[in-house]
C-alpha cells in the first residue's frame, strides 16, 4: 500500500507522484510486475542510469562497450515491482553484431513493458538513429535525455518538449551522475507501464517510391493476418524486405507466432541466457 492509497483526504502533496513510495531493490527481484529495458548508444551513461534506478553500484566506465552482457536489477515504485534490464550499448538495432542482436532480441522477443532509451544530449542526431529504431519495434518507450550538464557546458539548449512532440513518446531530461531527473524518469516509466500514458511514437514515414510502399503494405497485411496481435508488423515487413535472416528464422521456427499470442518464446529466452555473465 502506498501513502496515496491509504489517505482518505488527499492533499496535493499526497497525490503528487513525486511522493510515491520508492525503494531500490538492487539485484533482489524475485517477482516483478513490469520489466523495463534500458537501451542506448554506447557511453551515454546507461549504466549510470541503471545504478541510479536500482541503487546498485555496478561499475561504470567512461568507455564504450563496457556492458558486454545484460545486467539486471530492480526497484519498487508505487506498489509495483520493476525489473530493470541493462542492455549492451549499440548504435543501431540492425543486428550486425552480437551486442546489437542481444539488444534487439530483448526488445522484440522479451517484450519489456517499457523500454527506456538513454540518449546523449550532446550528440542528439546520432543517438536518435537508435531511438527511432527502438520506436519502430515498440510503442511503450520513454526517452531519457541524459548528460544535460554536458550539453549545457557545450552551450547547447535542447527543447525537450519539442522533442517529445516530434518523437511521440515522453522525454525526460536527466543528469544521471547527480541523480537529477531520476524521480521524474521513474514516475514516467510507471505511467507508461500502467498505461496511464500511451505513447504514439513517430514511425519512419512512407517513401516517395510507390512500388516500394505497395510492397511494404502488402507484406505488412500478410503478416498481420498470420500473426494477429503482433505490435510491429510493419517493422517485421521492413526487416524481411531487407533480407534479415534472424527475422526469417523467427517466422519459420514460430517464435514470432508465440509473440503474437503473448507468450515469451522459450528459444529466445534460452538464447538470451547465454549472454549472462559468468565471472
Amino acid at each position: 500500500m502506498t501513502v496515496t492509497d491509504s489517505l482518505p483526504h488527499q492533499s496535493a502533496c499526497a497525490t503528487c507522484p513525486m511522493n510515491r513510495h520508492l525503494e531500490r531493490l538492487g539485484v533482489n527481484m524475485e517477482d516483478w510486475d513490469y520489466v523495463v529495458a534500458l537501451a542506448g548508444n554506447p557511453n551515454t551513461g546507461k549504466s549510470t542510469v541503471f545504478n541510479a534506478l536500482t541503487g546498485l553500484r555496478q561499475h561504470t566506465g567512461n568507455w564504450p562497450g563496457k556492458t558486454v552482457a545484460r545486467a539486471e536489477g530492480g526497484f519498487i515504485y508505487g506498489d509495483k515491482r520493476y525489473k530493470l534490464v541493462d542492455l549492451p550499448g549499440t548504435y543501431s538495432l540492425l543486428a550486425a553484431s552480437v551486442d546489437e542482436e542481444i539488444a534487439r532480441d530483448f526488445i522484440l522477443f522479451g517484450q519489456p513493458d517499457v523500454t527506456v532509451v538513454v540518449v546523449d544530449a550532446t550528440r542528439l542526431e546520432r543517438n536518435l538513429n537508435l531511438a527511432l529504431q527502438v520506436l519502430e519495434i515498440t510503442d511503450k518507450a520513454v526517452i531519457c535525455l541524459n548528460l544535460m550538464d554536458e550539453a549545457k557546458r557545450h552551450g547547447l539548449t535542447i527543447d525537450d518538449r519539442r522533442l517529445a512532440r516530434d518523437l511521440g513518446v515522453p522525454v525526460i531530461s536527466t543528469v544521471a551522475r547527480r541523480g537529477e531527473g531520476i524521480r521524474e524518469l521513474i514516475a514516467m516509466v510507471h505511467d507508461v507501464a500502467t498505461g496511464e500514458v500511451k505513447p504514439r511514437p513517430h514511425r519512419i514515414p512512407a517513401t516517395q517510391d510507390d512500388a516500394l510502399n505497395r510492397a511494404v503494405e502488402r507484406l505488412t497485411g500478410q503478416i498481420q493476418a498470420a500473426f494477429p496481435g503482433l505490435p510491429n508488423a510493419r517493422w517485421v515487413a521492413l526487416r524481411l524486405l531487407d533480407g534479415d535472416a534472424q527475422i526469417e528464422r523467427a517466422i519459420r521456427d514460430g517464435s514470432l507466432g508465440d509473440l503474437s499470442r503473448g507468450d515469451e518464446p522459450q528459444s529466445v529466452v534460452d538464447r538470451l541466457m547465454v549472454a549472462e555473465v559468468h565471472a
Binding site: 542526431e125 536518435l128 527511432l132 547547447l156 535542447i158 527543447d159 522533442l163 519512419i204 516500394l212
Partner: peptide
C-alpha cells in the same frame, strides 16, 4: 533507402530540438 530515411528523420528531429 531504409537507412537514409532513418538518418534524414533523425537529423530533422534533432535539428528542430537543438539550439546551438
Amino acid at each position: 533507402h531504409l537507412v537514409e530515411a532513418l538518418y534524414t528523420d533523425a537529423a530533422q528531429i534533432a535539428d528542430r530540438a537543438v539550439a546551438r
